[in-house]
Design a binder for these strands. Structure first.
Length: 913
RNA sequence: GCGGAGGUUGCCGAGCCAGGUCAAAGGCGACAGACUCAAGAUCUGUUUCCGUAGGGGUUCGCCGGUUCGAAUCCGGCCCUCCGCACCA
């Protein structure tokens, strides 16, 4: 249907308010939510899949009589919107281009720059795009009750979040402590993925090195290592010949590291006191002691040492590190590698074997050295076992040894944790990114035992589709530990007990679905009072007793009561529908926060995980340019086609590819559906023969399947049955020479009702053209209303088709084009014998018919006993068969042909002439 | 490496949980035919191999096992995809 037709119905739905949901104690409720979209940009086809799926479910539930609440609100917490706005202010070309491209779809050319100017204020980005998203969702026909709309930045909501954090705190789930974060030196601020140049494509993570101390007479050297388990294999130290080294004091002792490194350490440790530069020769002339063993070793210069990685000092383990091995060789030092690890697996690679395998000849072969290093590290980590020369760590697996040795080093004050970035990184503004340890970080402690237990209980009581995500969810709950829940900057709610901090954007979005149940009322209360007192929140959302509302006036009291009733009616969430990447974060937090704070009755009840949507086989991303906006979907393809595509092309859980070929295929089917329902002529509908009855019987079967599958959230299966198969059946009726129109007349209204959840605009249009004044979108229909199916008619048709396909096969095998076809149908005598033989009573077979036994044994598998009027069926359809093969067909009842081929039940005797 | 999902006939993709009626749905593509001046659209049939009678052979990543019987159950192996954290 034309987009304008879709607009028309969207307008009518809106005006009639048919999707506004009110509590109704006489009806069962159904509450479905999708996580709120983040409002830094418009949404694309990929996002649309989950919302579309949810809408289909919401509409289906409405069809079957549920009182449905399908709400929506918007997310704006966190740093991205802030960061984008900042970049626009800075005039960052990449960001400007991104927004210009996006706005092109929504604005006139001449208005774009003015809009972008407004985006210098972050709030404008959020409000602009939430407005866009509302429009786009509307244009896709979503049956959302927009009265539920709010944002994570709304003051009333922030009051709720504060209450939630007080709650968590009083349960002992909030902690404060040290935490390493990625940090920009110049900006003096923690940075996220989007703040880092190329951070989205090439992720930067925090790596935990072990800083290892080598004591010397005048000062000690610190080397940073990822592999402290190799400590017994140390032969020497390396320093960079081109690097500035500096002395500093820490806890009274004097240490030396590279200048770059000291800068980093200052962000990780307190009380470091820089003393000043130190000469290379001062380092090289000294002896140092290895930790644990206290062997004397020396430092040497080597070009491969990077002053800006770790401490700029490297301890050398030539027995297990390719760089060290090659460096010693190249410097011509007389140091023998010490082996401290052996491999227990198949692969017995060593430094030496890899050097020769990869043909590494000098330190310049850095790519190959890196490859060798990676292979060896991995191998030795998973397969390695400590040899006998490792003191009390001998015999341990490398992973275990690493932990033990670390512990020992820390205990002896010969080591400490040194954080480093996983790669060199800069912010988009060009400032260096390092790891800083924040001393005052707030956490939610998800590792608490009773909390995990309660959460598992919730997970195990819920519905999951697909079911296997239940395990994933339980794993996620187990796997969560302390999570930083606040940041120094970003949009969001201030942490109530430490206002320097802003609650992090996933942590402020866990309980909000409960707000949907009464958003209008609660924000009204906030408006009147100018705040949202905890007593109100406790009463409305947490089963508080009405007594605690003693201080409020009648108006507030009544609003609160109304809000409470709505919440009690709608909450918990029956289905939360979202994509798989949310499992280990959002969904886990969502479940755990419910489990901790809210009463059992309000726990989540079901989760549906939707698969990825690809665009022409590729992941969708704005930078790739394959992100088709939802606006374009509704104008170029129409909402109904998109919805049908989403419903029918793949199961919810599997990957769906949006590509023109498949869209065209779905469109073809859609067009033929519309044609069938709109192009028929009235009046030619009176008499029905077997085919039409067959169609109606089949239709009723399809309907039953539809309801069963929809109830199990198998949307695709349901619509294959009620859309594709019904269309195929109609085609079949047509080819059989049946009366298609009378078939359609018979099922039209029911068919429209079940198709409405997927293609609501089309169905409304046709529905109204049938003379209905109401909306098919809110008509009811459920399994109980499905008519009967006549099984014998279906069997008869099957029998006819099987006979025809037998005819075809014989013709194909023989190559004969017959003038006449004689079909002899099984007679009573043989049928009776067949029944006897089927029941395995071979001795009851009359003697004169015993000769039939061998043939029966051969073909018994193919016998169909349940069609008893074969002669009639074939006679009635004689003309049809004749038409198919272009020859005469004679049908008769067969005699018994002892010793020859016979006609059997369901398997007539066929002779071609 | 850990955790999860998966490998099906030219391609996509059902089936597998509840073994037989599975040579294995549906779609796309290909081929042939009908319609048409022609193309497109639409419709019909074919699309693993063999077959002058409705039959038979060989198939569902690989190797074994259970069973009268396995695409379906069990064990091992190979390969692909997704997640592995402070980021929305």
């Amino acid at each position: 249907m034309d987009p304008s037709v879709e607009r028309k119905w969207q307008q009518k739905w809106l005006e009639a308010g048919i999707f506004q949901s009110e509590p109704d104690q006489d009806r069962k409720k159904f509450f479905i939510t999708v996580p709120w979209p983040y409002t830094n940009s418009s949404l694309h086809v990929g996002h649309g899949r989950t919302y579309t799926t949810a809408d289909i479910i919401a509409r289906y539930k409405r069809l079957t009589g549920y009182n449905v609440l399908f709400p929506m609100a918007f997310h704006q917490s966190g740093t991205p919107i802030l960061a984008f706005s900042e970049r626009i202010r800075r005039g960052d070309e990449k960001t400007l281009k991104l927004y210009r491209d996006t706005l092109k779809e929504y604005e006139n050319e001449e208005d774009i720059e003015a809009r972008i100017e407004e985006f210098k204020e972050p709030q404008n980005i959020a409000s602009y795009f939430s407005e866009r998203i509302v429009k786009d969702f509307t244009s896709l026909g979503y049956s959302i009750d927009w009265r539920t709309r709010f944002t994570s930045g709304d003051p009333f909501y922030q009051e709720f979040v504060k209450w939630q954090f007080h709650k968590l705190n009083s349960l002992g789930l909030i902690k404060n402590g040290q935490y390493p974060v990625l940090y920009s030196i110049n900006d003096r601020n923690a940075v996220g993925e989007d703040d880092i140049a190329d951070g989205d494509i090439d992720k930067v993570t925090v790596e935990e090195f072990t800083g290892v101390i080598f004591r010397g007479k005048e000062f000690s050297l610190i080397a940073a290592s990822l592999r402290p388990e190799t400590i017994y294999g140390i032969t020497n130290l390396w320093i960079s010949p081109s690097c500035k080294y500096v002395k500093f004091r820490m806890n009274g002792d004097i240490y030396v590291v590279s200048e770059d490194s000291l800068e980093k350490m200052e962000f990780q440790h307190q009380n470091l006191e820089k003393i000043g530069p130190v000469n290379e020769s001062d380092i090289l002339s000294q002896e140092f002691e290895t930790p644990l063993e206290h062997r004397k070793i020396k430092a040497f210069p080597s070009g491969f040492v990077d002053p800006d990685n770790g401490t700029g000092v490297v301890y050398s383990v030539p027995g297990h590190a390719v760089w060290d091995y090659m460096a010693i060789k190249e410097a011509g030092l007389n140091l023998q590698p010490i082996k401290v690890l052996e491999l227990t697996g198949q692969d017995k690679s060593t430094v030496e074997s890899l050097v020769s395998e990869l043909n590494i000849t000098s330190l310049n072969d850095s790519d190959r050295i890196k490859e060798a290093t990676q292979r060896l590290y991995k191998l030795e980590f998973y397969d390695g076992k400590m040899l006998g020369n490792n003191g009390r760590f001998s015999g341990l697996g490398s992973e275990k040894a690493r932990d033990e040795i670390k512990k020992e080093l820390f205990n002896n004050e010969e080591g400490f944790i040194f954080y480093e970035t996983s790669r060199k990184a800069q912010t988009r503004g060009g400032s260096k990114v390092i790891v800083a340890v924040l001393s005052n970080q707030w956490f939610i402690d998800y590792s608490v035992g009773w909390w995990k237990e309660a959460s598992h209980d919730v997970v195990n009581s819920m519905m999951f589709y697909p079911e296997f995500y239940r395990n994933a969810m339980n794993d996620a709950v187990d796997w969560l530990r302390e999570r930083p829940c606040a940041r120094r900057r970003g949009i969001g709610t201030k942490l109530p007990f430490d206002e320097e901090w802003v609650i992090e954007s996933l942590s402020d979005s866990t309980l909000y679905p409960i707000i949907y149940t009464n958003q209008e009322i609660i924000s009204r209360i906030f408006e009147i009072l100018g705040r949202l007192p905890d007593e109100i929140i406790e009463y409305v959302y947490n089963e508080g007793k009405e007594e605690i509302l003693g201080n409020f006036n009648q108006e507030i009291l009544e609003l609160a009561r109304k809000a409470r009733i709505a919440k009690d009616y709608w909450y918990g969430v029956d289905i939360r529908l979202t994509a798989a990447p949310h499992i280990s974060n959002h969904l886990a937090f969502y479940i755990m926060n419910h489990a901790a704070i809210l009463p059992k009755r309000d726990n989540p009840r079901g989760i549906i995980i939707s698969g990825l949507l690809l665009s022409n086989g590729a992941k969708i991303s704005k930078s790739k340019g394959n992100a088709i906006s939802l606006l374009k979907i509704s104008t170029k393809y129409t909402a109904d086609l998109y919805r049908l595509f989403v419903a029918v092309s793949a199961d919810i859980s599997s990957v769906l590819d949006w590509n023109e070929t498949e869209i065209a295929a779905v469109k073809k089917k859609y067009d033929s559906f519309v044609d069938y329902l709109t192009k028929g002529e009235e009046g030619k509908t009176k008499e029905k023969t077997q085919v039409e009855h067959w169609f109606i019987s089949r239709f009723n079967l399809h309907l039953k399947e539809f309801f069963t599958k929809m109830d199990a959230f198998d949307i695709r299966g349901a619509y294959i049955s009620v859309f594709y198969e019904v269309l195929n059946d109609l085609k079949y009726v047509e080819n059989r020479g049946g009366n298609v129109q009378s078939c359609i007349e018979a099922v039209k209204e029911q068919w429209l009702k079940v198709m409405t959840p997927v293609i609501p605009h089309t169905c409304e249009e046709i529905w109204s053209s049938l003379g209905h004044e109401d909306f098919v979108s809110i008509r009811k229909f459920s399994v109980e209303d499905v008519g009967k199916s006549d099984e014998s008619i279906i069997l008869s048709e099957n029998y006819l088709q099987e006979t025809i396909s037998d005819l075809r096969e014989i013709m194909k095998a023989t190559g004969i084009s017959p003038q006449t076809i004689n079909v002899e149908v099984c007679g009573e005598e043989v049928r009776e014998v067949a029944v006897i033989m089927k029941e395995n009573r071979l001795k009851d077979v009359p003697p004169n018919l015993k000769s039939l036994i061998p043939e029966f044994m051969k073909i018994r598998k193919g016998l169909k006993m349940d069609v008893t009027n074969e002669l009639e069926i074939l006679n009635e359809n004689r003309e049809y068969i004749e038409g198919l093969f272009g020859c005469r067909v004679n049908v008769s009842k067969a005699n018994v042909y002892p010793g020859k081929k016979n006609a059997w039940p369901g398997r007539p005797l066929i002779r071609l002439n």
